[in-house]
Design a protein around this nucleic acid. Structure first.
Lengths: 235, 235
DNA sequence: TAGTGGTCTAGACCACAGA
DNA sequence: CTGTGGTCTAGACCACTAT
């Protein structure tokens, strides 16, 4: 997809690792060997290797080499930016989205301070898997960034629409995970089966130019929640 | 501390950002300017800037510059590797650690597959803040990596001991966050106040040479749990 | 000692934003 | 058009691991 040399090298190495051509526990070819193999400079090889290390494929050890790590633990990777649609497709489960609200609101002072705008879209959706509503998503979008929305777009994937139709590029998100008592709204729109609490993931999503454009509150049924993180000590 | 040039530049820029010398929303000096300012090459400046971007201090935008981000949301950063001691000190609260178990065990087949060893230390500790036990930590260390442990070390910080006394360098950790029903042990050792579930953070910690050496299960009281994540779309 | 990854340099060309 | 960041090169020296 990308013409970048180091990304192409990264992708080829990922395929070889996932295809077990390079086994976990073994060492990757040295930077010098990869340099000749891909007919490129060492810094370019190193960019690809750094990306592999950041994504948990290898661990680089000075004087030794790059060790391939086991990826078994990552059968269900949610770390990072993952939309419900991507998640559901990864799980290979039939899923469904129900739109409960789609309206324009004036942001409360709380939301305004986070998004810096007052005209917002409010979208409330529940997510059904195996005939149970297990996630309640409450999204707020800045209307100047997202002038148009309809029920059909909300039912499929708003992100797909924004990226493909509007050319908006999502860059990064701050997330906060807590547990709260279930509200009346939660009890009404989710199948809680008597559970008294929900896991709440709040996030602020930013665009490529660093401007915030979305605030999301995702309320999960306790027993269906799982979050995977890969933390790396950066020196 | 480090003689690396790019880390020194990174640290100086962090100080200037946190000291508001560079204000949020404004742009950092361009790479060319920083190059002359620090009398170094552009790639070295870029290494420092990439580190700033990864840690959420700036957002780099092609054709424009590097924008300083607001850090208000990060008043309570747990993302990454944070020991209970670091966390408690950051909160500025008086805290206490109670050691319930400290013994050698043969790893179950489940643990062995994760750590690849059978001789393990098992340490069970609860963490008290404001006279309430809110976290139950169950740690397993590989005995060949950590030959000696005693109650005193467990009461303060095992990590401090390992890093300063044994020279072990922690490199990265895989974490998984879920919610489980409280066990009898949870009810006994935590002040649950009738709560029926606990947040469970399981993690595998690796050393610099990529070998796993610790498995931890950290069980948190629901209402005292908070996890902050900073996810960045890597292209 | 030979081989590994870590840092650093001085240059080059490209893609993009803005006046 | 100029200035910005993104990629790439071909070297150099250093720190560490193994033998």
């Amino acid at each position: 997809m990308k013409s970048n040399k180091y990304q192409a090298i990264y992708q080829q190495l990922v395929m070889k690792i996932e295809g077990q051509d390079f086994m976990a526990g073994n060492k990757l070819p040295s930077e010098h060997e990869l340099m000749e193999l891909f007919r490129t400079s060492r810094e370019t090889v190193r960019k690809a290797l750094n990306q592999l290390a950041q994504n948990g494929y290898i661990q680089k050890v000075r004087g030794k080499g790059s060790i391939v790590l086991t990826r078994d633990k990552f059968d269900f990777p949610i770390s990072g930016l993952v939309s419900f649609k991507e998640l559901a497709e990864k799980m290979g489960r039939p899923w469904e989205t129900v739109v409960h609200e789609l309206e324009t609101v004036d942001g409360s002072s709380d939301l305004e301070s986070k998004l810096g705008e007052s005209e917002l879209w409010k979208v409330v959706r529940s997510r059904r898997v195996d005939d149970e509503s297990i996630i309640l998503d409450k999204d707020y979008f800045i209307k100047s960034q997202v002038p148009y929305l309809d029920k059909k777009i909300c039912t499929s994937s708003i992100y797909d629409y924004l990226e493909s139709e509007k050319g908006l590029q999502i860059a990064f998100a701050d997330k906060e995970v807590t547990v709260e008592e279930a509200t009346d709204e939660d009890k009404q729109l989710l199948d809680l089966n008597g559970l008294t609490h929900v896991v709440v993931v709040k996030s602020i999503v930013h665009l490529d130019d660093a401007s915030p454009f979305q605030f999301t509150e995702s309320r999960h049924r306790l027993d269906k929640f799982r979050f995977v993180d890969f933390a790396r000590r950066m020196k």
